[in-house]
Simulated assay, not measured.
Amino acid sequence: MPTRKRRAGGEKREAVLDAVAAVLASRGYENTRFADVSAAGGVAISTLQTYFGSREDMIIEAMQVFTDREVDALRAVSASETDPWRRLVALVDRSLHNSERTRQILVEFWRSAMRDDELRDYSATVQERYRAPFLAAVREGVARGVFTPAHDAEAVTNLLLAALAGLIVSRVQQHPTPAPVEFRDVLLTQLRQMLGVDDSEPTTEGIEAR
């Protein structure tokens, strides 16, 4: 469990954490300083030190809060759709259409977790929570007889999330990548095959390329 969070700040602290996230997305972990956040958030450096203690704790708490928000967003998407296939499609779309800032912060979170023991432990918890709605949709589809997968639900979910994470990394690094809509078409085709889903199931609602 994370141990860095402090009580000082209240609502103002939340606004400061948003400023930290914005600086982190544009400058990266190593180049996010108290001075940068002070300028971006309009708060004194001394206040930042009171809130967080150290630069590292400030950045790590911002990443923790941000990733919690992403997990909560996936849960909301999952709760809005009762059909397992449509739910999976909605979860894929949420992941594919994240903002550039979201993608940058996620990659910084993964990078930082490689070197920080506390954050690494927290990242394992986040991964399980992030994965849960995808896995639940696959398992529910199997239980209902809607999905007839050749592999177990764990393996299907792992492959799906690996594909989504790989695209995030490539887009952040500005490698040549397919447009989200093109990637989505291929991914959903493969997912249909893995799950044995009827081709008549719709997959085109609410799609926007970004």
Rank of each mutant, 00 (worst) to 15 (best):
A40E: 08
D83P: 05
V65G: 08
T50G: 00
R69I: 00
W85Y: 13
A90S: 11
R55P: 04
E61L: 10
Q64G: 05
L74K: 12
R86F: 09
I45L: 02
G41N: 03
V89T: 11
Y51L: 00
G42V: 04
T47N: 01
L48I: 03
A90P: 06
D57P: 10
V89F: 09
G42R: 06
R86N: 12
P84C: 07
S78C: 09
A44W: 04
V89P: 08
D72W: 10
A62D: 14
I60E: 09
I60T: 11
I59R: 07
A62K: 08
R86P: 01
R86H: 15
R69Q: 14
D68V: 10
D57G: 03
F66A: 12
V65C: 12
A76K: 15
V65P: 10
Q49D: 02
E81N: 07
D68E: 15
R86A: 15
E56W: 00
S46I: 00
S46P: 04
M58T: 04
A73I: 02
L74W: 01
S54K: 07
I59W: 04
L48H: 02
F52I: 01
G53W: 04
G53F: 05
R75Y: 11
G41D: 03
V43D: 02
A39F: 05
T82R: 14
I45M: 05
L74P: 09
R55W: 03
V65A: 14
A40V: 01
R87G: 06
F52P: 05
T50R: 15
S80M: 11
A44G: 11
A39D: 07
G53E: 06
R87H: 01
A62P: 15
M63F: 07
I45G: 01
T47W: 00
L48K: 01
S46R: 14
T67R: 13
V43T: 05
M63W: 05
R55E: 09
I59E: 02
E61N: 08
A40H: 00
G42L: 07
G41H: 05
A40F: 00
R87W: 06
P84N: 03
F66N: 14
I59M: 10
R69G: 15
I60C: 02
F52C: 01
V77G: 08
A79G: 13
G53N: 00
I45E: 12
E70V: 05
Q64E: 09
A79C: 10
A40Q: 04
S80H: 10
D83V: 04
M63L: 15
T67P: 01
V43K: 00
R69S: 14
G41C: 02
A79Y: 09
L74R: 14
R87F: 08
I59Y: 01
L48C: 03
R87K: 15
A79K: 14
R75L: 10
R87C: 11
S46F: 03
V71R: 10
T67V: 15
E56H: 12
R86M: 13
S46L: 03
Q64M: 06
S78K: 08
E81Y: 09
E56V: 12
G42F: 03
T67G: 04
V71L: 10
D57Q: 12
S80Q: 12
M58D: 06
E81K: 12
A76V: 13
R75M: 08
V43N: 00
